[in-house]
Design a protein around this nucleic acid. Sequence first.
RNA 1: CGGGGAGUAGCGCAGUCCGGUAGCGCAUUCGCUUUGGGAGCGAAGGGUCGCAGGUUCAAAUCCUGUCUCCCCGACCA
Length: 535
Amino acid sequence: MRKTYFILTPYRSILQSHKKFKKISTVPPDQPCILAGSKFANHSLLMANKITDRKDDYSQWYLDVVKEAKLADHSPVRGSMIIRPNGFALWENMKQALDQMFKDTGHENAYFPLFIPKSFLSKEAQHVEGFAKECAVVTHSRLKSVDGGVEVDPESRLDEELIVRPTSETIIWDAYGKWIQSYRDLPILINQWANVVRWEMRTRLFLRTMEFLWQEGHTAHATEEEAVEETRKMLYVYKTFAEEYMAMPVLTGVKTESERFAGAVDTYCIEALMQDGKALQAGTSHFLGQNFAKAFDVKFQDQDGEHKYVWATSWGVSTRLIGGLIMTHSDDNGLVLPPKLAPNQVVIVPIYRKDEQREAVLNYAQPIIDELRDKGISVKLDDRDNFKPGWKFAQHEAEGVPLRIAIGPRDVENQNLEIARRDTLEKSIVPLGGIADHIEELLESIQADLFNAAKQRMDDATRTVNSYEEFKEEIENGGFIWAHWDGTAKTEEKIKEETKATIRLIPIHEDDPVPGECIVTGKPSKQKVLFARSY
RNA sequence: CGGGGAGUAGCGCAGUCCGGUAGCGCAUUCGCUUUGGGAGCGAAGGGUCGCAGGUUCAAAUCCUGUCUCCCCGACCA
């Protein structure tokens, strides 16, 4: 007896394209779907693409990509994540490039402790206010066993409670106070790679987690000019890193007072635009003035014999960059990685039927692997026998490997191979001769194309408006919007409440800015500022 | 922290309304056939149904509490 099944509308093209299901009836697109209960309800072809399309649900897509690319998992504790090997390898590559850039600009690495005495947090008034609401506090030092379980031992209460660092300015400036006496001790240019904890209400993998990994640079200078220069220098280090390594174009500028880092005089930032039209603050560099020097009483004796407060900066980028990377390049098939950061730049998938073919294919592949590795290109040979080539293709695409090489008996015979680009999904058959050079060029071109595509997208989504009406309409379409603003927090707040858009940055002008009138109040505006809805 | 949704095998889900001792697909193990876009057939293994209480002869299912995730708000990198 033959049963008739009905295919769910969204899946009909998938199933119909497969020979096995050719004869199955389909429901017209506007009819309700029936399939539950049939043998095919959970068929692998329907489950095959586990990644939600971006157009259907962007945040679900993001979560699917993180999961399918095996970047991170949720941990049992709310808001914290397990960074899996794929995700951590990415972070290590970012870290390596940034670390070199910091060293090239004269910085040294050091490590300051995780725990900060509670009293330190109260020393800088603005700083306290900014971070007080999101600090984890250690109050006890012991547990005790209680019938099979454990509970906090009330007798182990700490005399001075400890704060798990949300950032390290306080503990670092306490130390700098001991290190600095003379102008000869300056500047101090230190960076640290660390984890920090901020007790967030709402979290998202990589973009906002309670614990995250980052680097924080903390520098001390004799003069204001030097500190401001340092702040800006590191901002451009971040911009260079974002654009050259991540292939993620960014805009630079200064934050408004309401968006400024707690305790800073000026906060500089790099802002990127994600595919869904929302902005992401990808890195910050703060000019701290003498705020922390005063709070921790850090003075130096200058050449003129005077005792003066030290000038400070701090700057940081975090694992949030991984979130930015995902939302800049990835597509409905999964992660797309820029070659300069990809843990594996090339994956080789052998195709064969018989053992002789397997051997011939692997023998053919080995010199290619050697040649690529000699050029410093990272290659993975996926010779696992328990997965089909098609499965591997899909999996490596989900994981974002920039280039895939497929080698089968046909290629061995014809002395060529098939190369597929992850960014464009284009496949081509290329000759074996000069393959390493060809791949090196392809990787460079993928890196450049990813940046150009992202730049084009950002430029297309960046407009200027001249009235609040126009602003309200345009902001609905996402993207960056330049508009005049009267410079008051009140107007900024009104715009935020009415449109959910915030001022992402005030540009740093090399030449004189063009004045105008605020789109809300009509009052004088020194220059246009950049608005967007943001993460 | 407020409103909404969810948690059942490694993964994705059905079963919950109406209580009767757990099922499907993928994955895993074995065998044979396969391998250029997520292979096929046959057999096998795997789950204290998020956790803790309660109601009941009987709980994945009903009740209470709690944890975690997702979405929307308030807060922030």
